[in-house]
């Protein structure tokens, strides 16, 4: 049987559902934008974070982090739909179909990734406001990196969602695990100058590397970020490994569930 057919149909359903629930679009993009404007403007007045680029104020520093937050939120909303599918019985129908679980997870992950990418792209429109200029290279780089980040985050969400009975449980996990991962990725403040223990936590956080390579790609055609090519390669490898591992984790979780 054509294995791509179940993958594509599950992907397609995620997209259709999303566009029929407008509130999801709003909540995933408006909240991060508000954060960016309010926190960014507020902190810009008081702080010049250590280790950021020259001539860059906090609101500019914060921008890539906000894009990643949008990706994270969209990925989370996409995976919450798995919890709802289980509660409403839709998932059971998929589980008894003659399709391997890895293809179910792949369809869901690509669905969430696509939605995250679409919203991320919406946010890229305001990038020039923060001094970023796109060339073809940086745009391709940026989209590629955003794809990797979205895919990894969606799979991380799926890994959790496939175990969850209720969306309440998922919200708790989100606040305890997913938001801190974002906070400690260099999205909110740079790793330079933080206490030693915190810098270790940030170094162990895979999203730190994702953000690193994301900044690199965003500013590729604007100003050098100070990241060397070898650092960047290392970050891409870590981010890719993160994607593969979370996908395998989500698939493994899906195989271990009976209903």
């Amino acid at each position: 049987m054509d294995v791509l057919l179940p993958v594509s149909t599950i992907w397609w359903r995620e997209i259709i559902r999303f566009f029929r629930q407008r509130s999801r679009l709003l909540s995933a993009i408006v909240q991060p934008l508000l954060f960016w404007i309010l926190i960014g403007s507020g902190l810009s007045a008081s702080f010049q974070p250590a280790g950021v680029l020259e001539n860059q104020n906090y609101i500019e520093y914060f921008y890539p982090g906000i894009v990643v937050l949008v990706l994270l939120f969209t990925a989370i909303f996409a995976t919450i739909s798995v919890v709802n599918d289980r509660k409403e019985g839709f998932l059971q129908g998929i589980l008894v179909a003659p399709v391997p679980r890895w293809s179910i997870v792949l369809g869901q992950a690509l669905g969430g990734t696509t939605l995250a990418l679409l919203q991320g792209i919406l946010l890229l429109i305001i990038a020039p406001l923060t001094g970023i200029q796109f060339g073809l290279t940086s745009l391709i780089w940026t989209l590629g990196v955003m794809f990797l980040i979205s895919f990894g985050l969606t799979n991380l969400g799926l890994m959790i969602a496939w175990r969850m009975e209720s969306t309440q449980g998922f919200h708790a996990i989100m606040n305890i695990i997913l938001i801190p991962i974002w906070l400690l990725s260099g999205a909110f403040f740079p790793i330079t100058g933080v206490p030693g223990w915190l810098s270790w936590v940030m170094k162990l956080n895979p999203l730190t590397y994702a953000l690193d390579v994301f900044r690199f790609s965003l500013y590729f055609n604007s100003i050098p970020t100070g990241t060397t090519l070898s650092q960047c390669t290392f970050s891409i490898i870590i981010t890719s490994v993160f994607c593969v591992l979370t996908y395998l984790g989500a698939t493994f979780t899906a195989y271990s569930q009976t209903n």
Binding site: R13, I16, R17, R20, E88, G89, F90, Q92, G93, V96
Partner: peptide, 14 residues
């Protein structure tokens, strides 16, 4: 097999 579960298995948004 064709399976109809007790809980509704349709997607209301589709």
């Amino acid at each position: 097999l064709g399976v109809v579960f007790q809980h509704p298995g349709l997607d209301g948004k589709l």
